[in-house]
Amino acid sequence: MADTLNDPKDVLVDRAARQMSDHFADSTLSTRQKLALTCRIAFDGGHDSGLAGQISARGREPGTYYTQRLGLGFDEITEDNLLLVDEDLQVLEGEGMANPANRFHSWIYRVREDVNCIVHTHSLHTAALAMLEVPLVVSQMDTTPLYDDCAFLKDWPGVPVGNEEGEIISAALGDKRAILLAHHGQLVTGATVEEACNLAVLIERAARLQLLAMAAGTVQPLDPALAREAHDWTSTDRRSKANFAYYARRALRNHPDCVTGKVEL
């Protein structure tokens, strides 16, 4: 005999949240391992654009963060070849140099204390949408974590290696978790590596869906109240961890070299 078929939605939502908290524990992966896996997940998810794009996560000490070495593609990143840099992009650990375009990561970390990971790529469909100079439109259930949570920078500031670009991009991002950069690509942030990785996967899917829908007709909006409800329900820490674990398992099957030792997911 079923006991929950007459329960209201809010009761079922609370129950599901408690169950996810019980079943999806905190990860035992290190920040380096999560970042290396995120690079491989991004590569497999259509974010590859040669050497363009940067993925970073805060280091243990204030004003430091991990990022990939310039000259390596996302599919070549391992936990061992990541760099630890300071805000001036001086290498503190590792060999090689960081991408000079990482400078705007320093600006975002400075103004957003809630951000612990940044994924910036020139993924195919976000870059294509950015060429049209139109904002991202979220109109499908799976992509609602980005609903009213993706800013838009219409004016391309040029190659983002100066402090000016850091000021412009961090200001345009505001308090959102994501931003579409016209004539450029996308950038997502997260309180955790898992959250940022998940949003990176979703923003590329959302851009692809938008382009397909625009080619077929007029994109219809979501009901705002329902969209915000879905945004909050799909943006919890436990859901981010569960999604990341799935993406990481898939990445490890394709790229077992990206982490060292046995990984439990």
Rank of each mutant, 00 (worst) to 15 (best):
residue 2 A to P: 11
residue 5 L to M: 11
residue 7 D to K: 06
residue 7 D to H: 03
residue 10 D to V: 15
residue 14 D to L: 15
residue 24 F to E: 07
residue 38 T to C: 07
residue 39 C to A: 06
residue 40 R to F: 01
residue 44 D to W: 01
residue 44 D to T: 05
residue 46 G to E: 04
residue 46 G to Q: 11
residue 55 I to E: 05
residue 58 R to F: 09
residue 62 P to S: 11
residue 65 Y to I: 14
residue 67 T to W: 15
residue 76 E to K: 07
residue 79 E to V: 01
residue 83 L to H: 13
residue 83 L to W: 14
residue 88 D to G: 11
residue 94 G to E: 10
residue 96 G to H: 09
residue 99 N to K: 12
residue 101 A to W: 15
residue 102 N to A: 15
residue 104 F to G: 10
residue 106 S to Q: 14
residue 110 R to D: 04
residue 115 V to I: 13
residue 122 H to C: 02
residue 127 A to G: 04
residue 132 L to F: 03
residue 133 E to P: 00
residue 146 L to C: 09
residue 154 K to T: 12
residue 155 D to F: 12
residue 156 W to C: 09
residue 159 V to T: 12
residue 160 P to I: 13
residue 162 G to R: 12
residue 166 G to P: 14
residue 171 A to E: 07
residue 172 A to P: 07
residue 173 L to Q: 04
residue 186 Q to Y: 08
residue 187 L to V: 05
residue 192 T to W: 09
residue 194 E to K: 11
residue 205 R to D: 11
residue 210 Q to Y: 14
residue 212 L to N: 12
residue 219 V to Y: 07
residue 219 V to N: 05
residue 222 L to D: 08
residue 228 R to G: 09
residue 236 T to Q: 12
residue 247 Y to T: 00
residue 247 Y to L: 09
residue 247 Y to V: 03
residue 252 L to V: 04
residue 252 L to R: 03
residue 253 R to S: 05
residue 255 H to S: 03
residue 258 C to H: 00
residue 260 T to S: 06
residue 263 V to E: 06
residue 264 E to H: 02
